[in-house]
């Protein structure tokens, strides 16, 4: 599974993406954030305020409770500030 990062989340992590193989117990976006936080202290620090982390699965906006299903790409990013 590829995980894309954008904006200040990307900068705080110091990378655009990760390629990971989470265990089968990781079934939702919330689980994935928990698991990544356990794997990487920098990720845990950057995502302390979960309300600021938005997500997409395969280029579709989702919330933290959404099942990962057979996702090939997950994106994590801060609140959007376009327009």
């Amino acid at each position: 599974m590829k995980i894309l990062y954008f904006a200040w989340l990307r900068e705080r992590l110091g990378r655009d993406f990760d390629v990971v193989s989470p265990p089968t117990s990781v079934t939702t976006i919330a689980d994935l954030i928990d698991w990544l936080s356990g794997e990487d202290e920098g990720f845990a620090l950057a995502t302390t305020n979960r309300a600021l982390i938005h997500a997409a699965i395969d280029d579709e906006l989702v919330d933290h409770a959404t099942p990962l299903g057979g996702a090939t790409t997950v994106a994590l990013f801060p609140p959007m500030t376009g327009g």
């Binding site: 954008f6 801060p78 959007m80 500030t81 376009g82």
Partner: peptide, 14 residues
């Protein structure tokens, strides 16, 4: 369109 775009289209200003 503008009100919805501001918070739901993935753009980030720096």
């Amino acid at each position: 369109i503008m009100d919805t775009l501001k918070t739901t289209a993935p753009f980030w200003k720096k």
